[in-house]
C-alpha cells in the first residue's frame, strides 16, 4: 500500500523546524485566501510562494504532483460538465452539437488552479510536520474553544491514536490476507460470490482484531491512570521562535496582498 498524500518525509529543513501551530494557522489562512477572486496575478503570486516553500522544504515537485494524480479524473469531468452548462463569454469553438464558450474554459481553469493550490499547500504541511506534532498543535489551537465545550484534548488524542494505528492495521491486513490466501482464498480470480466471501474473510478478522487492540490499549491507558478530564502536562512543549513569527508575517502579507488584489483593485 502506498500513501503519498499526507506522508511525513523526514528531513531537517527550516520548514520542518517551524512550529506546527504556525504552519497549521498559515495553512488555514492560505486555504481561505485561495478563494479570494484575485484573478490571474493573484494565482501567479500564490504559485510563486508555493514554489519557494517547496524549495525551502526540499520536497520534490514530482512527489507533490503525484498527490494530484487521483484528481485528474475529476478535473476532466469538471471540464466536460462546464462545457455543456456554461454558455457565457465569447464563443470560441462551434462543433455543431456543442459550443464552447470562453467562460467554460476560464471557470474550469480557476477550479483546477484552486484545487491544485489547496493540495499543494496541504501536502507541504503534512510532508514537513510529524503527525504527532500536528496533533499537539491541533490540541493547542483548539484549546480556546474548550470553554464552549469542544473537548480539544480528546480530539487530539483520538487523532494521534488513529494515526498511530494506521501502519499496524496495514500490517494486520497483509497478515490476515496471507493467512486466508493459504486457505485457498483467491481475491484476484473467482466469481462474484467467491470475491464477496474473500472480502468477508478479510474484513471480519480485521474488525475483530481492531476492537481487540482498542480494548487492550484502553485498558493499558487506564491502568496507567489516564483520564481525559484531568489536566495533563506534556513532555514535548511547543515553543514559538522568531522564525515562526517571521513566517506567519510573510503569510499574512501574502494574504493581505491577495485580498487587496481581489477586493480593492
Amino acid at each position: 500500500m502506498n500513501f503519498t498524500i499526507g506522508r511525513y518525509i523526514p528531513n531537517d529543513t527550516w520548514f520542518h523546524q517551524l512550529d506546527p501551530r504556525f504552519k497549521i494557522m498559515a495553512l488555514l489562512f492560505l486555504l481561505i485566501a485561495i478563494f479570494f477572486p484575485a484573478g490571474y496575478p493573484g494565482y501567479a503570486l500564490m504559485f510563486v510562494a508555493v514554489f519557494i516553500a517547496l524549495k525551502l522544504s526540499q520536497l520534490s515537485f514530482k512527489n507533490v504532483l503525484r498527490a494530484l494524480k487521483p484528481l485528474l479524473f475529476m478535473f476532466i469531468f469538471l471540464a466536460v460538465v462546464n462545457m455543456f452548462y456554461l454558455k457565457d463569454g465569447i464563443l470560441l469553438l462551434d462543433l455543431g452539437f456543442i459550443q464552447i464558450y470562453s467562460e467554460a474554459l476560464s471557470s474550469t481553469f480557476y477550479i483546477v488552479v484552486r484545487l491544485t493550490l489547496m493540495i499543494m499547500v496541504t501536502t507541504i504541511l503534512t510532508s514537513t510536520t510529524k503527525p504527532l506534532d500536528m496533533t499537539l498543535a491541533i490540541e493547542d489551537l483548539l484549546a480556546p474553544f474548550q470553554r464552549i465545550g469542544v473537548p480539544s484534548h480528546v480530539i487530539a488524542m483520538l487523532i494521534s491514536i488513529a494515526l498511530r494505528f494506521i501502519p499496524d492495521l496495514v500490517d494486520e491486513t497483509n497478515r490476515i490476507m496471507k493467512a486466508q490466501e493459504s486457505r485457498g482464498v483467491d481475491i484476484a480470480n473467482g466469481k462474484f460470490k467467491e470475491k464477496l466471501m474473500a472480502i468477508l474473510a478479510l474484513i471480519i478478522p480485521l474488525i475483530i482484531s481492531a476492537f481487540q487492540r482498542a480494548e487492550d490499549l484502553a485498558n493499558a491507558m487506564e491502568a496507567r491512570g489516564y483520564s481525559p478530564n484531568k489536566h495533563r502536562t506534556r513532555y514535548r512543549q511547543l515553543k514559538a521562535t522568531s522564525c515562526d513569527y517571521l513566517f506567519i508575517t510573510i503569510i499574512i502579507v501574502i494574504v493581505i496582498a491577495l485580498a487587496l488584489m481581489a477586493f480593492v483593485l
Binding site: 497478515r175 490476515i176 496471507k178 493467512a179 486466508q180 493459504s182 486457505r183 471480519i204 478478522p205 475483530i208
Partner: peptide
C-alpha cells in the same frame, strides 16, 4: 498448508 504464527486471528 501454511499455518501462521497466532493463527487464531484468522477465524471468522
Amino acid at each position: 498448508g501454511l499455518v501462521f504464527q497466532f493463527p487464531e486471528y484468522q477465524l471468522f
